[in-house]
Amino acid sequence: MARVKAGEAANPAPPTVQRIRVRFAKRGRLRFLSHRDVARSVERAVRRAGVPVAHSHGFSPHPRLSWVGAAPTGTASEAEYFEVGLTSPVEPSALVSALDAALPDGIDILDAVVAEAPSLADRIDASRWVVELPGVSVADLSAAVEALLALDTLVVDRVMPSGRRQIDVRAAVASASATAPDSRASHTSAGGDCAILTAVVRQTTPAVRPDDVLGALDVVAGLRPPVPAKATRTAQGLLDDRGELADPLGPPRVTTQV
Rank of each mutant, 00 (worst) to 15 (best):
T75C: 15
P118W: 05
V51I: 15
R29W: 13
V114M: 04
E91T: 04
E146R: 12
I20S: 04
E116D: 12
A70C: 02
V113D: 02
W67S: 10
A39M: 14
S41P: 04
G58A: 10
A112W: 09
L148Q: 03
Q18Y: 03
Y81C: 06
I20C: 00
V46S: 03
A147Q: 14
A126Y: 12
V155D: 10
S142T: 13
P52E: 00
I20T: 08
L99S: 01
A101V: 03
R44N: 05
K26L: 13
S56K: 06
V136E: 07
R123Y: 14
A150L: 00
S56F: 00
G50Y: 07
L151F: 01
V17I: 11
A139K: 14
A98F: 09
A117V: 13
T75A: 15
L110W: 07
R44Y: 05
L110S: 11
V96K: 04
P15F: 03
G58F: 03
L65N: 05
R44G: 06
A79I: 00
G69S: 14
A39D: 07
E43T: 00
V114E: 15
D105H: 13
V138L: 04
D105N: 11
D125T: 07
R64N: 04
P104R: 02
A79Q: 06
I124D: 09
D105T: 12
E116G: 13
D100M: 11
A144E: 04
G58H: 10
R21E: 14
P52Q: 00
D152Y: 04
R31F: 07
A115C: 10
Q18H: 01
Q18V: 08
P72R: 11
G106V: 06
G74W: 06
A79G: 11
E78R: 13
H35Q: 13
R19Y: 11
S34W: 03
V68M: 12
S60P: 00
L148C: 08
G50W: 08
A147V: 07
P92H: 10
A70Y: 03
I124L: 14
V68W: 05
D37Y: 00
I107R: 01
A94F: 09
V84R: 03
P118E: 07
V130K: 06
P61A: 07
P92A: 10
V131S: 04
L33N: 13
V51L: 07
A94M: 09
